[in-house]
Design a protein around this nucleic acid. Structure first.
Lengths: 205, 205
DNA sequence: TTCGTCATGTAATGGGTTACATGATTAC
DNA sequence: GTAATCATGTAACCCATTACATGACGAA
């Protein structure tokens, strides 16, 4: 898709986390282009006789013709897979986790599990740190600070419970997948829930 | 206190949110100094005969003598009060809210209430946005993205409930304070909970 | 024809981090 | 005396945002 569209979609997908300004998005696309990870297409949708002078009669002529449409190259897809396959420490930091999670649909099952578990242990470390600070400073902070800590701690605890559910769900899916040997392990969608394929750049190379 | 100490305390107070590197802290202190909002003291704690050659025998000689100890000037305190009194939109953004909340102990009750309500309405806007995106994209995103949205939405809902409790608590405290006319309104500590005074730069001017 | 939205881009700017360098003080 | 920690500071850099500038297109 093109930049403008990408940004809006980025917003709806991980909007709660962060959105990206055009000032960083467009230069980034240029870099990706220079690195050969994406190619630029011009999306002139069959210029058979589209040049007819008649006004487009409102809503027809579906998508407004847009400037630059980008598409991942083979190199780009490989790079993406490398990125998604990493699952290292960067993937369980606050920043990285959201993005990695948003791409779980394209991520190998074993990597998904590693990321979820890594994230959980990160949060458990943080919980420990907060709890320690809690007992250490008990009487030395005012009640608002205490309340802030309490709420922060509960937030972390809640996310850990969420991760526990996801991990259990992933493990369950793994067991089911291994019972029926019809497919290679580590590539299916996951646990509960029906249709799970993402839009998946359609007829691309 | 001095920079090193400040940073550690910053970490324990709003550590869950963000910590500050020395690379930004020290230049910042220099700017504050240049603006006359803080002064530098050298904290030579009574050099009566502390120069005795004997080793300090371990744990005595309480605070380690530190390099530069800063203290707020009258101007600095005024500026702080201005900052704390603002309670405008900046105070209910993700960034600003944590800091403002951490200073609630020094903040006027009416400002506290305004900040809490502003924060709540910000979150309610966000909830609406997420819910809208939810129904709009219902069938077009994979289950992981959906799960991310669901969890994000619940996080926001939870924070709203937390704010509701805090607001109720503040209102209750306000009513109690107005019943006993012993003090000026809008300066007491708040609702439930015992000791609430913060360290409050001790015998300072 | 003009306005609003879609769409892309550039330059200035800002706020922070990392990495580095230094020195004082305490513990062994 | 040497290592670890406390404590301060500087410089390079990273990365994103803001503000600005441009242009195409659809609707009034």
């Amino acid at each position: 898709m093109h930049g403008y569209e990408l940004r809006k979609r980025l917003y709806t997908v991980l909007g709660a986390f962060r959105t990206l300004s055009y000032g960083s998005l467009y230069p980034c696309l240029q870099d990706l282009l220079a690195d050969g990870l994406i190619v630029e297409e011009h999306d002139e949708p069959a210029d058979d006789d589209a040049r007819s002078g008649t006004a487009p009669t409102g809503r027809s002529r579906a998508g407004r013709r847009s400037k630059k449409v980008y598409r991942l190259t083979a190199d780009g897809k490989e790079r993406l897979q490398d990125l998604l396959g990493e699952g290292g420490p960067a993937a369980w930091e606050d920043d990285g986790f959201g993005v990695h999670f948003a791409f779980f649909g394209q991520t190998r099952a074993d990597v998904r599990l590693r990321i979820l578990e890594g994230r959980r242990s990160r949060l458990e470390e943080r919980m420990e740190a907060i709890r320690a600070a809690f007992t250490r400073t008990r009487e030395r902070v005012d009640r608002y600070t205490l309340e802030l800590h309490r709420h922060g701690l509960e937030s972390v605890e809640r996310e850990v419970r969420w991760l526990n559910e996801l991990i259990a769900s992933e493990r369950e899916a793994g067991r089911e997948a291994s019972r029926e040997p019809g497919r290679e392990p580590g590539r299916e969608a996951g646990a509960a829930g029906g249709q799970s394929h993402i839009s998946d750049n359609e007829e691309s190379s």
